[in-house]
């Protein structure tokens, strides 16, 4: 079933709170609905990514691939954006995003976002306001986490922890603080 503008407003008030019903209707026209099954890879770590996704239903895992091993560092659900870093700062994706269950996503491609900026600058500006707030909050949390890690490094020597243990602890902290890296 297609997500209506009214449903988008009700389910994601943070995203649409400064938009009129007509603006939400226009906004939704730029999205493309994607339905993916559990375990589908939505974004591949290190690969170029030209779309960002709003999780509408279901949940996704944020997965880092390192030395041929995968580490789940976060879990995100409805209302979360993934892939926006690679769209705002074009380049490879910072992490993989994998469907933890069957998911419904709204994809906004870079091309569609550019079209929106040209055709409906006010709506694009309102959307960017939301995305900037999310990026800023995430950056602040990343800074806090880095300071925590540095403090812990000074208190307990990481050398006594095996790499696997260190990664597990960091993974736990990232997941706990909702540090999605995608």
């Amino acid at each position: 079933m297609e997500l209506t503008a009214d449903e988008l407003r009700k389910r994601f008030p943070q995203l649409t709170r400064h938009m009129t019903p007509e603006q939400v209707r226009v906004l939704i026209g730029y999205f493309e609905k994607h339905t993916v099954h559990a375990d589908a890879r939505i974004i591949e770590d290190g690969a170029p990514s030209k779309s960002m996704y709003l999780v509408v239903r279901g949940g996704v895992s944020i997965v880092l691939t390192m030395d041929q091993q995968e580490l789940i560092v976060g879990a995100l659900g409805p209302g979360a954006w993934v892939g926006e870093i690679a769209v705002m700062d074009p380049g490879p994706a910072c992490a993989s995003v994998v469907a933890a269950e069957d998911c419904e996503l709204l994809a906004l491609s870079l091309d569609a976002f550019i079209d929106m900026q040209n055709d409906h600058p006010i709506i694009a500006s309102l959307l960017l306001q939301v995305l900037c707030a999310e990026l800023a909050a995430r950056l602040r949390a990343s800074n806090r986490l880095l300071m925590e890690l540095i403090a812990r490094d000074e208190e307990t020597k990481p050398a006594v922890l095996g790499d696997g243990e260190w990664a597990k602890q960091l993974g736990g902290q990232l997941a706990g603080t909702r540090e999605g890296l995608a």
Binding site: L64, I85, M88, C94, A95, L145, L149, L170
Partner: peptide, 23 residues
């Protein structure tokens, strides 16, 4: 947005390096 994304990418790389090396 570009600067925030770039800063986040930078921090993510640093975090990844921490996971990898433990240093």
């Amino acid at each position: 947005a570009r600067q925030l994304a770039r800063d986040l990418r930078h921090f993510d790389e640093a975090l990844r390096s921490a996971v990898r090396s433990g240093e």
